[in-house]
């Protein structure tokens, strides 16, 4: 057995695995920064109320653009066109959170769903044209959407307590649509144990919005003067 050969092998392998481990660490770090800053965007959107709508959303969009420019572009730089699938586990959490923040902003602004193609198109400018561009894959997009429903639930509840019932109902329809569409996709997803868990949470969110909506419509109905008086008459009778 030639020890020299082994040494050589060790060094060759070392160069590749060590480089990859370092890279993985940096990618994980970049992903964590994206997560933190995307969460800030989401909190910003939650500050929305009837009066300050425009201003809050404007700030949120500016923050989101900053996340794209600073943190996503750093992730792109760290990845440097390596195999996106190989390091997916390392950056997936951050990308999911980013999808969540971007779609949340878009929904509050226009009431529509931000498509994957639109997100990916917005990422193109920050990519180095000489390298293969980072494009968010379907799986991360869908996982991000699943988290979005949780944020929408919180938004719906706060809208109801603010008295914006129609808006809450709009959210409710939107979340239901997402939930319904996702139920069809889950069986086909790559590793769907994660997604299955998210689906359960999502159903809970849908139910919570529906219940809040329902109890409110019920109370609104009862508080109408005509209903009130007729009920009281019935009670007296």
């Amino acid at each position: 057995m030639d020890l020299q050969v082994l040494r050589w092998m060790g060094e060759a392998v070392e160069r590749t695995t060590q480089g990859q481990n370092d890279k993985r660490e940096r990618v994980v770090k970049a992903s964590r920064d994206i997560t933190i800053n995307s969460k800030k965007v989401i909190f910003q959107v939650h500050r929305i109320s009837k009066s300050n709508r425009e201003e809050v959303l404007e700030k949120a969009e500016k923050d989101l653009a900053a996340v794209t420019d600073q943190y996503i572009s750093r992730l792109v730089k760290e990845l440097q066109g390596t195999d996106f699938w190989k390091l997916r586990r390392a950056y997936s959490p951050g990308v999911q959170e980013y999808v969540e923040a971007a779609t949340f902003c878009k929904f509050c602004k226009t009431g529509t769903l931000l498509n994957l193609a639109e997100i990916n198109a917005s990422l193109l400018p920050i990519n180095d044209p000489s390298l293969e561009p980072l494009q968010i894959n379907v799986l991360d997009y869908l996982l991000g959407l699943a988290d979005l429903t949780g944020e929408l639930m919180r938004l719906a509840i706060s809208r109801i307590s603010d008295g914006e019932l129609e808006y809450a109902e709009k959210i409710c329809r939107f979340v239901r649509d997402i939930y319904r569409e996702l139920t069809l996709l889950v069986p086909d997803m790559d590793e769907n144990s994660d997604m299955k868990k998210k689906m359960e949470t999502m159903l809970q969110s849908v139910v919570k919005i529906e219940n809040a909506d329902a109890s409110n419509s019920w109370l609104t109905f009862l508080s109408k003067p005509s209903v009130c008086s007729s009920l009281q008459e019935q009670r007296l009778a």
């Binding site: 929904f107 226009t110 009431g111 529509t112 769903l113 498509n115 994957l116 193609a117 379907v138 869908l142 709009k170 329809r173 939107f174 649509d177 997402i178 569409e181 996702l182 069809l184 996709l185 086909d188 997803m189």
Partner: peptide, 19 residues
């Protein structure tokens, strides 16, 4: 202001084919 669920459906249809 209301979103059209048909565009949502279209995107998801596309995802379904892909997946």
């Amino acid at each position: 202001s209301s979103y059209s669920s048909s565009s949502v459906e279209k995107q998801f249809e596309h995802f379904r084919v892909q997946l």
